[in-house]
Design a protein around this nucleic acid. Structure first.
Lengths: 103, 103
DNA sequence: ATAGTTAATCGCAATATTGCGATTGATTTT
DNA sequence: AAAATCAATCGCAATATTGCGATTAACTAT
């Protein structure tokens, strides 16, 4: 049906999947990489760097913001985007814990 | 257009996104967790554990196999699934490297 | 040979994602 | 007040994903 049966899985499983999804697109990886370099930047900078239109970049940013990976603070008419370190730690902790024993 | 512009991004960015995508669904997280516990199991076991039909589980397994996260060795009529430690290391290395400096 | 077991695949439907151009809203600059 | 800047959102189209039942393929066991 195209509908992820989220209710059938645990909160933890859904959260981990959500975090993974937030990085499951090359553009989003590129956004993270750019934010790692620049520490912070506005949407327009990302549009310059990425091979995508402004509206598409804006959508990716929205998705990443919803997952919590990044934050956006408004300084009109600009919006300053940053990585959310807390959530990145959550990400590495979740997967680190998961795979620590086996590799 | 619904088409990821993969060719516009680097091989590395696409690979990282591919790995993330392989875990970007609660069912796939559950599959990994189960394989961590059992070390190895057949498809039918996963069908018993997951709230999804056999065909759907089979599809998820195929996707994860394509990304390299798991391997499936045929012992007819069963197929034994395992985590691919090499690729899990690739996963943790990629993200660990990425986020090591910041958090 | 026949029946049983297991998992992949096919065919279908519903929903989600990806992408863009155009528009809109908010705020600064002139 | 008017124009410029920046980013979010709308509306649309194309493609991908998710899910299931039914079928098929590949063996084993009888």
């Amino acid at each position: 049906m195209g509908l992820s049966k989220t209710e059938a899985f645990s909160t933890e499983q859904n959260r981990i999947a959500e975090l993974a999804k937030a990085l499951a697109h090359p553009a989003r990886v590129a956004i993270v990489q750019h934010l790692l370099k620049t520490k912070a930047c506005i949407c327009g900078d990302l549009v310059d760097v990425l091979p995508l239109s402004q509206s598409t970049v804006s959508q990716h940013l929205k998705a990443m913001k919803t997952a919590g990976i990044i934050t956006g603070s408004v300084k009109p008419p600009k919006v300053c985007y940053c990585l959310n370190m807390e959530v990145l730690r959550e990400f590495t902790a979740a997967f680190g814990e998961m795979f620590s024993r086996c590799c």
